[in-house]
Nucleic acid binder design. Sequence first.
DNA 1: AACAGCGGTCGGCATTGTCGAACGCTCGGT
DNA 2: ACCGAGCGTTCGACAATGCCGACCGCTGTT
Lengths: 255, 255
Amino acid sequence: MAGPVQSIERAAAILRLLASGPRRLGLGEVAASLGLAKGTTHGILRTLQNIDFVEQDPATGKYQLGAALLHLGTSYLDVNELRSRSINWADALAARSGEAVRLGAPLEGKVLIVHHVFRPDDTLQTLDVGALLPLHASSLGKVLMAFGSVPLDSAVEAGLESYTRHTLVAPEHLAQALTEVRELGWAAEVQEMIMGEAGIAAPIRGHGGLVVGAIGASGTVERICDSQGVPQPSLVTQVRHAARAISRDLGAARW
Amino acid sequence: MAGPVQSIERAAAILRLLASGPRRLGLGEVAASLGLAKGTTHGILRTLQNIDFVEQDPATGKYQLGAALLHLGTSYLDVNELRSRSINWADALAARSGEAVRLGAPLEGKVLIVHHVFRPDDTLQTLDVGALLPLHASSLGKVLMAFGSVPLDSAVEAGLESYTRHTLVAPEHLAQALTEVRELGWAAEVQEMIMGEAGIAAPIRGHGGLVVGAIGASGTVERICDSQGVPQPSLVTQVRHAARAISRDLGAARW
DNA sequence: AACAGCGGTCGGCATTGTCGAACGCTCGGT
DNA sequence: ACCGAGCGTTCGACAATGCCGACCGCTGTT
């Protein structure tokens, strides 16, 4: 008999709700969104406020996420084994390939970026660590789905949002693409999320050979793909090598 | 009569405990540290695990922070007004001064770094965003204490840990230093946390003139200070200008 | 082989959090 | 200037809820 503490679940639901939109939310909005009484919601919010998990705008009374979460989030990075074992390999991959490198792990039907090495050139880039990517429109996400780290259903349930005209929105197309990924051992994404951008990713395996994450390179279509829009074989090899090296570090046997 | 939801408070205590040490903790350790029954602790941990706030090492059964916190933490950065209003000024200050620039806000008797611009040269630097600095051994912390953003007591209670032989460990010395800071309008820290490193900081004020954060430049002693170990006046001016500019952006009247 | 330590489970008790109505306040409309 | 709608907040009573502590099964050690 599982006994999940629902006041904690509700608190987490509030935090997720506040994180989902960039906007500050009022007490009424929060209560309505979760189907809770205002009084109940207020009690939880007051508690979250005491521990700095949420802050309240003194002027409008609206709520937003609090500072303590930032520290907890970065503390998570310190203990994340996937990340710490990958850093050196990711750096090397970025240097050799000349592309931005990102590491992803599954979270809530999305891909959480746990590490990000900028493209070696000096162009302006924003740090993606902590961001959530869609499963079906990113090379990292395709890898995670193809190798069973996260079920295809969870992506379909979340809704196959269309970002560009290349986004795979039909479940059967996506399923077919994942079959290919399984056969090839790596995934690509070409202008499926942002026009002009593409990416390549390969699976990272942990102890028992289970896929626990993915590593990928991404950049403009011209650099990632050849003139026919096919990913550069040399880049694919580099990404797969890095993925295997990290898997080995994590204790995966023969991969 | 305030009714803080204590299961949430306990959950937060567990998260803080897990964040405090880089080590994974067992159920027994957590329960003992918080003075709770094992069963109670287990229920909370199970709930936190369901929502990805903590993860459990399948091999050892020990617990660590979970991935969802990373996303919440970065989401906080998106809504933090102090940070968003400061980014441009911080960039400019780093470029003009040639030093690393950091923004701090008070959290749990420490200074939380909410923004960090690297020193413009290409030396290897680690991102401090999300890190907690001590109040008494950082220029940012001194500013926050001196201008009432956080009481001096909270630093004394936390214990004036000694990092170098220059660290201010006597409450009366610290109090005197803070008086100076109030008079001057800015704070310095010279080798009080790390030998060879120094910093300068100035207060950032919000709506009603209340100090809500601090901005500071930091680097090696040779660059921050002159040959007598006194902070460079030009650098002080630049930092104070940036602080005033941000305060204005935040809506503070005449500062 | 016996034990000690671990994480996990279970059921009874009362503490605890939840609910919904009522309050005071600030805006916005009239 | 008034009124009213909407907000965040408070309060008290009820019972559902999560807490406790003893018990279980496992693993690794001695």
